[in-house]
Nucleic acid binder design. Sequence first.
DNA 1: GATGAATGAGTTTTCATTCAT
DNA 2: AATGAATGAAAACTCATTCAT
Lengths: 196, 196, 196, 196
Amino acid sequence: MARTAGSHGPKTMEAIRKAALALIYRKGYEAITLRQLADAVGIQPGSLYNHVRNKQDILFDLVHDHMTTLLAEVEQAVPAGATPLAQLERFITFHVTYHITRREQVFIANSELRSLEAGNHAVIVGLRKRYEGVLIDILRRGGQDGSLRVDEATIAAYAILSMLTGICSWYQPGGRKSAEQLVTLHRDLILRGVVA
Amino acid sequence: MARTAGSHGPKTMEAIRKAALALIYRKGYEAITLRQLADAVGIQPGSLYNHVRNKQDILFDLVHDHMTTLLAEVEQAVPAGATPLAQLERFITFHVTYHITRREQVFIANSELRSLEAGNHAVIVGLRKRYEGVLIDILRRGGQDGSLRVDEATIAAYAILSMLTGICSWYQPGGRKSAEQLVTLHRDLILRGVVA
Amino acid sequence: MARTAGSHGPKTMEAIRKAALALIYRKGYEAITLRQLADAVGIQPGSLYNHVRNKQDILFDLVHDHMTTLLAEVEQAVPAGATPLAQLERFITFHVTYHITRREQVFIANSELRSLEAGNHAVIVGLRKRYEGVLIDILRRGGQDGSLRVDEATIAAYAILSMLTGICSWYQPGGRKSAEQLVTLHRDLILRGVVA
Amino acid sequence: MARTAGSHGPKTMEAIRKAALALIYRKGYEAITLRQLADAVGIQPGSLYNHVRNKQDILFDLVHDHMTTLLAEVEQAVPAGATPLAQLERFITFHVTYHITRREQVFIANSELRSLEAGNHAVIVGLRKRYEGVLIDILRRGGQDGSLRVDEATIAAYAILSMLTGICSWYQPGGRKSAEQLVTLHRDLILRGVVA
DNA sequence: GATGAATGAGTTTTCATTCAT
DNA sequence: AATGAATGAAAACTCATTCAT
């Protein structure tokens, strides 16, 4: 049959990725069907398999892409030679900014981990551990040189990451607060706490 | 929920709830099947319907129970007449303690919101808003009387809740840290931040 | 929904077996669909799974049942103490009779072996080797005591089995020849050949 | 297999035929996919259609080629003027030799008949009848002139053909027995039977 | 001639749900 | 209250086939 609609050629893969990101973000990996995804792309369900091996791969690709980008960029953002405090400030700024610009990827990478098959799961958890490691390392060095008040670097890192990552479950682009304001608010909270 | 009147085994209903909690916690609502649930309970899939109206109700029950308990208990835990700072400390203690004792309920109530049908979703979001309101209120009053350094009470509340709730995604009962230690660590973090 | 048509209860399994036998005989295992099978039984495709684990199991059951019956009956039919010649005559009589009464099972057991998964395949091949062994043993003993002119018992057995089993690819019940006539014709052929 | 570099034209068609023969022999017509076939040839599935009208044609070609060759060669092999006994010996020799040299074609021509569409099926069955006719004719004339002990020439012919054709389901080229030995064994069996 | 991407119909299988017993 | 067997809808995935490039 002649092709009726939708996108062709190398653009299709990009369209699939985009549609999958939006759909999974809204409904969750388990809840979406490949029919819905195909509809969103404008092709038949079977045609997805010209670009993708199976449903699982779609999720893994999305999460894996996100994690490798995240890791690559955090290294750029946190200057190696700086003091732990300076590094922490940079980390917070980077994390908040990145997370509100890529809410969907971040959200999926956190909430759909459970839907990854064992092998894929291990890969992503490994990458995530490396990312967490960046913050743990900063906190640990700050604790050792006395510039930061941190006994349990790991727990503190988890706490900080949870706080910052939580932003993407309520943040709406174009909301009342700018990215910079969010950075400031969270940086202050983390650095100095709430007690006046 | 909705057990048929005259049923002689409230134990079955309890077993269903327990099994559902464990299963949904591990795999997610969309990913589990009623066959798995029935297996875990030791009955046939059809028999579930003697106790439950449908799959959705199982989730809603679990989450609703959790939310009402949470609300009831937070009121007990946070003394009405105390200062904002004292209330905040109590809130943190309560929240952490509650969350690590009921990791599964908490996790589900957060991660499976998306799987609730519109009506059910609205109910739960309403309850959650009330719970968040408790903290927002504390922070706002603390900001007003100058005892807490908080401009944006709502955002600060979300940040604090995200941090604290995050505990249940990594906490293992019987781990290196006791509940009290976790309370202390997080309270210090929130109250005074990390800068030495 | 109320059940509309078809068979219920323990009879369904029997109906499935029967319909599967007829369908696979006519079209082959790979060529039939579970929709066709369900139609023939008078149930919905999904309902098959109340009785059967999957498509492969249907085939295996059919073939396995046939092979075990065949083995059990051949032992009855061939008297242990008799001379090789007498045993051979009995074997031929049994084999021909059995094969024309159960053409479908026999045909499937031979032609659909290829469609069995590795494990199932091995089981059936094992049973078949045991059946072939009965004839090989007769021929070998006949060759040793000089009553039969057989050098290569295995090859001769395969040749005889091929000849006899071939009957079910052309035999029509109620055709010109009775079962007894077929037995006689083939027995003569095997025992004395065609040269006058 | 990888396509021989830069090979075009009739070589591809030959490669398709060869790969199809091997694949269908191993797995059966219904069980193979054109993707597997294309892989084996080293081209894309769509490219098959430059050489072949559809899947069915591939099977028909294979079987039809085989049957016409078989018919052409059997006429060469069986001398028209010879006695029925001499002709029978030649027929056996020819059939066995041909079948063990072209096991795959023979096997397919027998086992995949069922997968031919009505029209194609009729053509092949017609050719097969002509081949069977050669043997039936020999037996009938032998029965009439008293040189062969055959009442039912058709049934005897089917029996003999089944026996001989059966060889290709177990014969392995390079096995313990040479083609000549197989010819001798089977000729003796058919001509004189097994009774000493 | 070959390719990559598309189609549409179909496959086996799963699942929530129903209901007579 | 439990069961076994049924339904009907849908899921992921496959496949022969087409066709613009």
